[in-house]
Design a protein around this nucleic acid. Structure first.
Lengths: 340, 340
DNA sequence: AAATTACACGAAAACGATATCGTAAAAAAA
DNA sequence: TTTTTTTACGATATCGTTTTCGTGTAATTT
């Protein structure tokens, strides 16, 4: 049982607790010899400071929370991975919370964090979040928050995103240049800023190339996969069926693939597909999937870096800042018949 | 600034701190009226207890750590997701640590946890871990640990795995029954128990069907993807090339797919492939991948459940226990030409 | 009426580390 | 030599809870 504390150390060395504490923190108040003795004794007795005592004293826990809509998602996982990597370097620890894309659960989690369990929060809001009181409360409690991907424009803080508008534009234009005449957009949620921007990019590209916008081809999807499958199947088997699909998120592209497989719709011959995606197996799909790939790892890393920077300054208010890290288009078989 | 503490509440109510504390914890010592007053005031003043003060006092933090080889891995992510779901229900929080499959980093992380930052640990050991002092230290410090998937037989505690031997046997037999004559096994690490068992299953099936074991067909892979690609390419283009591959983990199956794609080896005609995998897109690969799918979500959930059960009892020693949750074989195109 | 028990609350000691003071002794300056 | 400064350390309050123990009043028992 290594329950050695400062008091034990002090007793063993016949000096005071405060001297031991200062020696271990390399204070200028303590002589070199004493320091050495203390450090040696701490080593030999296997001392390691009780973290919670320090947290209580300093009101800092060196812990942050990542609050995410879902975990089983390549994008978020890579973002966690990026944040985790940089956290370790800065001596921070990461608590993980999944909101299951539900505003109520999201709100509950943030309320739980209100009491100072974490020094800061990295967050991607859930798709049905349209009010932000729970977020503002957190900030007012002095806990800074940095958004990434699914951001809140309404909150003043740092926000990391990719170039959603430009990428949406690029994706749509790529479909047009690949010969598509009727392009559908699969939307994930009307409340999400990223969705809005990607859709704006889509609309802009349509306009530029004098395509008429058909509201029927803008499909409002949700978190309910059954319903999404229905909607996608319906549009792909309707008279007005599109010959190109731009999926705003990976999940919807995969659903599209499933629907096509079951209904013998050939990609890319009958239908070309492009999607925002961080799938590692995009290359190996049948056909390989043309993607807009976000630098998720870097985005997570950047979000964490900014948060740590402000935490180090003991500034709980993070000024508004929009950081954009560009995505990349990878053209593959789902939009180009010459690629397998 | 909601920095309301018990003292503030007590002052506002003109009663003592201890009464407030007891009232909020619904102690029998406090009268009903006082309780109501206190609770109402706590509500109106927005009181929320400082977690670290409680942790310090109780020596419990309601926090556990998950220590994993890597995050960008479908299996581990599902396991995290399972643990996270059950943690929330039990009021626990989860810290995430990635070892990058490196024993040194793993050791460093466990050392960091030694000081009581967490009440318990869920862990899958890294593939080059062959000594267990750092794990034993943790247990001796009174922090219980539950293993899942990549377990340590040498440590006495609860261990959750899938039926690796039987699944390895089943996978190999499936290849044999699919007509394979020369079956290779892609090993991930000789130190890992799961790998060992899967390989034993492979060997047993080979024996049962009077296949001669060819050591050349047992390929020792590693965490270095370049090297794995080389090895797999080498064996698939050698004179002694196999017509069936059993990949012990998903990553190696994907590498096999890449190699086949680049070298025009047709799956399943030239080569049949089966793999342990939790890929959501197994269906959509070219060809779809026959998998042994582990119930990762349930495994994570079960591991967390067991840990919480023991933590609730304040028992820091978890008796040895082996819990097995079976995997499922999903036959798809990579072993059956009639399936796309 | 006296003795006992229950009830409702307050005072204070932990939990373990940190930081502000205060103060001896030694060194430097006057 | 006296005064001032530096050096090195100790005593103590503090962070916010929880919990043990003590105590005065009211209710119950003999």
């Amino acid at each position: 049982m290594s329950k050695v504390n400062l008091k034990d150390l002090a007793k063993a060395l016949n000096i005071s607790v405060s001297t031991v504490s200062k020696a271990l923190r390399d204070s200028y108040e303590i002589g070199d010899e004493t320091k050495k003795k203390v450090i040696a004794k701490a080593q030999s007795m296997g001392y390691s400071p009780n973290p919670y005592a320090g947290f209580l004293r300093n009101q800092k826990s060196k812990t942050i929370a990542m609050v995410l809509p879902e975990l089983t998602n390549n994008y978020f996982i890579q973002a966690i991975s990026g944040a985790e990597a940089i956290a370790h370097e800065n001596g921070y620890h990461i608590l993980i919370y999944a909101t299951n894309d539900d505003k109520e659960k999201e709100s509950g989690i943030l309320n739980h964090l209100l009491n100072g369990r974490v020094d800061g929060v990295l967050m991607s809001v859930s798709s049905n979040t349209s009010q932000y009181e729970h977020i503002n409360e957190l900030i007012q409690a002095g806990i800074p928050i940095v958004f990434f991907d699914r951001i809140c424009h309404e909150i003043e803080t740092a926000k990391i995103t990719t170039n959603d508008f430009a990428s949406g534009f690029l994706a749509t234009e790529h479909l047009i240049q690949s010969g598509c005449k009727k392009i559908a957009y699969l939307s994930i949620s009307e409340h999400l800023s990223i969705d809005h921007k990607r859709k704006q990019g889509y609309l802009e590209a349509m306009n530029k190339h004098d395509f008429t916008i058909d509201e029927q081809l803008i499909v409002q999807c949700s978190t309910d996969e059954k319903s999404n499958t229905q909607k996608i199947k319906k549009i792909l088997t309707s008279k007005n069926k599109p010959d190109g699909i731009f999926a705003s998120v990976e999940r919807l592209a995969l659903t599209t693939y499933q629907v096509c497989k079951r209904n013998n719709i050939s990609i890319p011959n009958d239908l070309k597909v492009i999607s925002f995606s961080n799938l590692r197996t995009a290359d190996l799909l049948n056909p390989s999937l043309t993607t807009i790939t976000q630098p998720a790892f870097e985005i997570g890393k950047e979000a964490a870096t900014i948060l740590f920077k402000h935490l180090a300054k003991r500034k709980s208010i993070i000024p508004n800042e929009n950081i954009v890290i560009n995505s990349e288009l990878s053209i593959r078989g789902s939009t180009n018949p010459t690629i397998k």
